[in-house]
C-alpha cells in the first residue's frame, strides 16, 4: 500500500468517479440494449476505461480529443454531456449530434470532444491537422488522438505520425492496444509486437504501459503533456488493455473461440475500478456512487422522454446553409 501515500486523494476520487461513471453507464447500455431502444450499434469500452480516464484527467478543458466508434469512455472521461450522449444513442433530436451520428460519432465541442469516426484510422490525420492549427495560432492547448491497434495497420496512421513529428505538433497519440481488431490478433497483422517503438522511429518519444495501471498512464500522460506544451513536439503512448465484451454489442464472446476466457480474466482480476475503489473509504465510495446513479437515471429518462427528429431534419446540416 505504499502507493496510497504517494498519491493525492483528490485525484483518486476523480479517477474513481470517472471510472465508475463510465462502467455504470455502459452496463446500463448493455442492460437496455435488448429492448432495442438504443438505435445504434454499441462498441463498449468496458475493461478499457483506465486509458481514457488516465489521459483525460491529465488534460485541460481547452485541450481537444479525437476518438473512435469505441468512444463512450473517452467522451465521458473528457467531460462530455451524459444526457446528450444517451439521447444520441436513442436517436433523439436532443442528442449530441441531433440523432444523426449515434454511438459511433459522439461529439461535444464545449468540452473539447471533437468527434469520433467509424472508419478506422480516419481521425488520426484530422487530429493532427487540428494540432497544426493550434500551433499556428500559438495556442497553449494540445490534442489527444485516441485509436486502437487496428488503426496502426492503416497508411494514414504512419502518414500522420510522420507529419506531426516533422512539424513538431502539439499532439499526444494514444494507441489503446486491446490485442484485437474485431477478432484478428495483432500479431496476425503485425510482424512484431512493437507499436510504440515504430512510433519512435518517426521522431517522437514513446512509451508502452503494459499493465493498465491508471496511475502509470496518468503520470506518463503528464510527463509528455508538459513536453508538448513546451513546444517539443508530439509523443506517443501505447496502452495495453483488454476489451471485456464482444467487439460490438453488449455480450461476452468466448463462445467464438478466437480468444480464451483466461486472456480476459487476468485483466478482470486487476480491474482498476476495483483497485482504485479500495483506496477510498466506504463512505467516500458510496457518496460518489449514489451521485453517479442519479445522474445515469436522469440521463436515460431524458433520452426516453426526448422526441425523435422530425422529418424535415433529414436535409438539415448537409451544408452550412441549405442549397
Amino acid at each position: 500500500m505504499s502507493k496510497i501515500s504517494k498519491i493525492n486523494l483528490g485525484l483518486t476520487e476523480r479517477f474513481y468517479r470517472s471510472l465508475y461513471r463510465i462502467r455504470k453507464v455502459e452496463e446500463e447500455i448493455a442492460r437496455i440494449y435488448p429492448t432495442d431502444k438504443i438505435k445504434s450499434p454499441v462498441h463498449l469500452s468496458i475493461g478499457q476505461e483506465a486509458v481514457s480516464v488516465g489521459i483525460c484527467e491529465a488534460l485541460r478543458l481547452k485541450d481537444k480529443v479525437f476518438g473512435t466508434y469505441r468512444g463512450h469512455a473517452m467522451y465521458l472521461a473528457k467531460g462530455g454531456d451524459l444526457k446528450k450522449m444517451i439521447a444520441e444513442l436513442y436517436g433523439k433530436v436532443t442528442g449530441c449530434a441531433k440523432g444523426k451520428g449515434g454511438s459511433m460519432h459522439l461529439i461535444d465541442t464545449n468540452h473539447g470532444i471533437m468527434g469520433a469516426s467509424a472508419i478506422v484510422g480516419t481521425m488520426i490525420p484530422v487530429a493532427t491537422g487540428y494540432a497544426y492549427a493550434l500551433r499556428y495560432r500559438k495556442s497553449n492547448s494540445l490534442v489527444a488522438a485516441f485509436f486502437g491497434d487496428g488503426a496502426v495497420d492503416e497508411g494514414a496512421f504512419h502518414e500522420s505520425l510522420n507529419f506531426a513529428a516533422l512539424k513538431k505538433l502539439p499532439i499526444l497519440f494514444i494507441c489503446e492496444n486491446n490485442t484485437y481488431a474485431i477478432h484478428s490478433h495483432h500479431l496476425k497483422r503485425h510482424h512484431s509486437d512493437n507499436i510504440f517503438i515504430r512510433a519512435r522511429t518517426y521522431g517522437m518519444p514513446s512509451e508502452r504501459i503494459g499493465d493498465g495501471d491508471i496511475f502509470k498512464i496518468y503520470r506518463a500522460a503528464n510527463k509528455y503533456i508538459a513536453k508538448i506544451r513546451q513546444g517539443k513536439g508530439p509523443a506517443f503512448l501505447e496502452c495495453l488493455t483488454c476489451r471485456w465484451k464482444e467487439h460490438v454489442g453488449p455480450n461476452d464472446d468466448f463462445d467464438l473461440g478466437y480468444r480464451s476466457e483466461d486472456e480476459v480474466s487476468c485483466w478482470k482480476k486487476n480491474d482498476p475500478l476495483k483497485e482504485i475503489g479500495l483506496l477510498l473509504s466506504t463512505a467516500t465510495r458510496e457518496r460518489i456512487e449514489s451521485k453517479v446513479q442519479v445522474e445515469i437515471e436522469e440521463a436515460f429518462s431524458f433520452a426516453e422522454k426526448s422526441p425523435f427528429p422530425s422529418k424535415e431534419k433529414i436535409y438539415q446540416d448537409v451544408f452550412a446553409k441549405s442549397l
Partner: peptide, 12 residues
C-alpha cells in the same frame, strides 16, 4: 493524411 490534416485545421 494531408487531406485529413487540412480538415483538422479547418475544424479549428
Amino acid at each position: 493524411a494531408m487531406t485529413g490534416v487540412a480538415i483538422g485545421a479547418a475544424l479549428a
